[in-house]
């Protein structure tokens, strides 16, 4: 049984923003796959604003290599829309691994970001695409990078009156791109470690490397020093080996030594190595 609340089902963005501005103690619901579970476990609020009927928020548009994904686009849509498969392969692969078919039909990219789990599959691919989020309130529209949006596990910069309306990413033409993860089972499992990558190579050299590691640190992150190190270097085993060691050092810098490192560091090393080798 859910705690008692009053819900509204706005049909336009303006209506939704007006609700968020005027009613206190409100939570936004999209697919509900995180929020309702948390409510069943004891979280409560007086008001719920259901944004699934809001016109335009479920739109996906592509313009000149720029992809704008509305916040209520579902994981199922992201994993099956051909154009995303071509232009943001790591993202569509990651969204195809989230939960189960039912969860993917319900859960949305906006919900995944606002929930801000360290294990959220969509975050790492969006980080390598330098995602910029559009956040709106009744009086203001602002943009924020995904990197700045998530400020701690399960915590974002979103204010109570604000709504995440869309995510904008740029295609990375010419890059080979992907997402791999390990989990306790092949399906219907939470990611234990993940790597998203987009790598541009030319004649045996790394021209540009973008990496993001998920489920390892409090927030998925880009090991920037490693990306910098690899830029322009020849793609040979010693260089890849050095990069892998640097990744583990970056993780150590973020979290300090952890008991889980006995498992995590070898696995993340293997994932990164495979990503770099291709």
């Amino acid at each position: 049984m859910l705690p008692d609340f009053v819900s509204v089902n706005p049909e336009t963005k303006e209506e939704a923003l007006a609700f968020l501005d005027s009613i206190g103690d409100a939570r936004v619901i999209a697919g509900g796959t995180d929020l309702l579970v948390n409510m069943k476990r004891g979280e409560s609020c007086r008001n719920v604003v259901d944004i699934m009927n809001v016109e335009g928020l479920n739109r996906l548009s592509v313009n000149d290599g720029e992809i704008v994904i509305g916040s209520t686009v579902t994981h199922a849509a992201i994993s099956t829309i051909t154009i995303l498969n071509d232009m943001a392969r790591s993202l569509s692969a990651a969204c195809g691994l989230i939960g189960s078919p039912q969860i993917r039909n319900m859960g949305t990219v906006g919900g995944n970001l606002v929930n801000a789990s360290p294990a959220a599959d969509s975050i790492s691919p969006l980080l390598i695409h330098d995602a910029i989020l559009s956040i709106e309130s009744k009086d203001e529209t602002r943009e924020e990078t995904l990197e700045n949006f998530i400020i701690a596990p399960y915590e974002t910069s979103l204010k109570p009156c604000e709504l995440l309306t869309s995510v904008c990413i740029k295609a990375l033409p010419g890059y080979r791109e992907g997402y791999r993860r390990t989990a306790k089972r092949a399906a219907w499992a939470i990611s234990r470690l993940s790597v998203a990558w987009a790598i541009l190579e030319d004649e045996g050299r790394f021209v540009d490397v973008k990496l993001a590691i998920g489920s390892c640190t409090p927030m998925p992150f880009r090991p920037r020093s490693v990306e910098e190190f690899l830029r322009g270097r020849t793609k040979v085993d010693p260089t890849i080996g050095e990069a892998v060691v640097m990744v583990t050092e970056e993780i150590r810098k973020i979290t300090g030594d952890r008991p889980s490192f006995a498992y995590k560091l070898p696995v993340v090393s293997d994932l990164v190595q495979k990503a770099l080798r291709g």
């Binding site: 796959t33 719920v48 319900m106």
Partner: peptide
């Protein structure tokens, strides 16, 4: 499309 009715308002 399949959905979980236990998490659907």
């Amino acid at each position: 499309e399949p959905h979980y009715s236990c998490l659907t308002l």
